[in-house]
């Protein structure tokens, strides 16, 4: 014969220790005097022993850093779903933050790699300046429209490259943060230039690179004046994640070089030399 149903329904909760003290006491009294129900209780106990509840959860194996990134990723997906076609500043900031938190790369290894890139870029920048007037001559000889766009593209990429290298090599001064006012001014200038260039007849690869750069530039331009290391690291993680320095380096040979003339570039170059 089966155990009484109302008792049987309580047996699983009983063995899990989920009954109230009063219910537990009543059930124990009943089991002491009812062999059928006691047998059913024993059967449930054995079943639960056969399928033990794991002592650890799958989530326990994942670090707090992982869970930080998890919530950021969820929020980014939420925002992305909300507005798929517009680039939103905060969304990208959190994306960068999640990338930085999730991908725990060795900063030392990154620094070594970027130092090599910086040396190569700066060597080219200061060791191979074209004679003044080269581009003006080219404009006079060929089609006026196309060389102008190419020259502006080239200048845009070179400025961006110097800016990115400067950011990657920047260090806080005596723990007091860093001054990014020059970089922010240049980034605003570059954002305007990017918007002009993206409306021109350029190839898709270039358009994508401009769009990727623009995200970083917007982030930099909107950064509040608390330039501590984590903020810079977020930008660096974004630059690194998109392989922007590599892409800029690869695209460098595709365009005619043009001498840098603006004040902001001089400021940046001086910073680059001092690194």
């Amino acid at each position: 014969m089966k155990a009484q149903k109302h008792v049987r329904d309580l047996l699983y909760d009983f063995h899990r220790g989920e009954l109230s003290q009063d219910d537990r006491r009543k059930l124990e009294e009943h089991l002491a005097g009812c062999k059928r129900c006691a047998k059913a209780a024993e059967e449930i106990r054995v079943l639960m022993q056969t399928v033990p509840v794991p002592q650890t959860k799958p989530s326990d194996a994942l670090s707090e850093r992982y869970w930080d990134a998890f919530s950021y990723n969820v929020m980014n997906r939420v925002r992305s779903e909300e507005n798929q076609h517009s680039v939103r500043k905060i969304s990208f900031a959190e994306y960068l933050r999640s990338v930085f938190l999730y991908q725990r790369r060795s900063l030392a290894a990154i620094s070594v790699g970027l130092t090599i890139v910086a040396v190569v870029v700066l060597t080219r920048q200061f060791g191979n300046v074209d004679p003044p007037g080269t581009d003006q001559l080219a404009e006079q000889q060929g089609d006026i429209q196309t060389p102008t766009v190419q020259a502006r593209l080239d200048q845009y990429f070179r400025k961006s490259q110097i800016l990115m290298v400067g950011l990657m090599n920047m260090k806080p001064e005596n723990g007091n943060g860093v001054d990014l006012s020059v970089e922010q001014a240049v980034s605003r200038e570059l954002i305007r230039e990017a918007r002009f260039l993206s409306q021109q007849n350029i190839d898709e690869r270039t358009r994508v690179l401009i769009a990727n750069l623009e995200k970083i530039l917007i982030e930099l331009a909107n950064m509040e004046k608390q330039y501590d290391l984590p903020d810079i690291e977020i930008l660096r993680a974004g630059i690194n994640q998109e392989n922007l320095l590599f892409k800029l380096r690869m695209g460098e040979g595709s365009y005619t070089a043009e001498p840098l003339t603006q004040d902001s570039e001089r400021n940046l170059s001086q910073k680059g030399e001092s690194l």
């Binding site: 959860k57 799958p58 989530s59 990723n73 969820v74 997906r77």
Partner: peptide
């Protein structure tokens, strides 16, 4: 709720990547 959502998804899928994706999609 993210840890329990992940654990639930993992219980069904037995795969970290799938569980992560399902948990995130569920929140969305």
């Amino acid at each position: 709720h993210m840890k329990q959502a992940y654990n639930l998804a993992y219980g069904f899928l037995l795969d970290h990547d799938d569980a992560e994706d399902v948990a995130q999609e569920s929140f969305v």
